[in-house]
């Protein structure tokens, strides 16, 4: 923590970065919250621990930070994936971010709980794959059961009707608060399709039909783009298991196109790139 504060103080002091998007202590020490450090004094409030669950890359595309000089960001490996994907999608200019990469042994699954997030179980980026400065010691944690994979396999084995009723029961609880979208670093569209009214593509009503339209279209828009940070699911007050859809779409992207979102800075994006060798047999 001291090395983080020291580094932040230096970066802010010598003008390398304008601000640092990091974490500070929340309501209790077991909760960390996003914090924008603007001064050297602020740097002293920065923390990093297993309670730092937020993916701060969500702030990089905000108007007040975009193209306003170099922005420092405290990032775990999974957060770096989002940053890389944003750079790939030309939403963030590489030289506009200064990544303070954190070696990470896993974070908790949400605020106020102590269990490790499912996404950490098989994490391949405990040491971030892109950074300007790397802090903390590498952490070795034994690979655990991939909870999501099992559920996805279970869903895959269902009939169409069973799948429908599973998701119907889940989506019925959606209240259309759009916390999933707002917490997602890749949901940066200036005007979301859900907010477009001419024509209205997605009914804004939070009934089953409108909720299906919203959640499924969001999953489509994130396929091959979702980095699996799980922020949408964590933010959802209705606790809809959104990771299951997004992960499934990611698995398809991997299988059909050998593409993993946010892993290679120079790789063309999956949906932004057309290759004559692309397989098309999955379109039925």
């Amino acid at each position: 923590m001291n090395e983080l504060r020291q580094l932040a103080k230096e970066l802010l002091g010598n003008g390398t970065v304008k601000v640092i998007i990091g974490y500070s202590e929340g309501t209790t020490p077991e909760r960390a919250k996003p914090f924008i450090a603007r001064t050297e004094e602020d740097a002293g409030k920065l923390i990093f621990n297993k309670y730092c669950v937020n993916n701060l890359a969500v702030y990089l595309t905000r108007k007040e930070f975009k193209r306003k000089g170099t922005i420092g960001i405290v990032a775990k490996g999974c957060d770096v994936k989002a940053i890389v994907q944003l750079i790939q999608e030309n939403q963030v200019i590489k030289d506009d971010v200064y990544i303070i990469g954190m070696n990470c042994g896993g974070v908790v699954s949400g605020f106020g709980v102590d269990d490790t997030a499912v996404k950490c179980n098989n994490c391949k980026v405990k040491t971030p794959h892109l950074y300007h400065t790397l802090l903390g010691a590498p952490v070795e944690t034994p690979a655990k059961d991939d909870g999501h994979l099992k559920l996805i396999q279970k869903l895959d084995a269902m009939t169409a009707e069973e799948k429908w009723s599973f998701w119907e029961a889940e989506f019925e609880k959606c209240v259309k608060c759009y916390a999933c979208r707002q917490a997602c670093p890749l949901c940066y569209c200036e005007k979301c399709i859900a907010d477009k009214s001419m024509p209205r593509w997605i009914e804004s009503s939070a009934h089953t039909r409108g909720n299906f339209a919203w959640n499924i279209i969001r999953a489509f828009h994130l396929s091959g783009r979702c980095v699996g940070c799980g922020e949408c699911e964590r933010a959802c007050p209705a606790e809809i298991p959104l990771s299951l859809i997004n992960r499934k779409m990611g698995m398809v992207a991997k299988k059909e196109f050998d593409y993993s979102a946010g892993m290679a800075l120079d790789a063309p994006t999956l949906v932004g790139n057309y290759d004559t060798a692309d397989r098309e047999d999955f379109i039925k």
Partner: peptide, 13 residues
């Protein structure tokens, strides 16, 4: 406002 994401969780809960 600088960290608020602008979702409706607070209002809907």
């Amino acid at each position: 406002g600088s960290t608020c994401l602008g979702c409706g969780q607070c209002a809907f809960a």
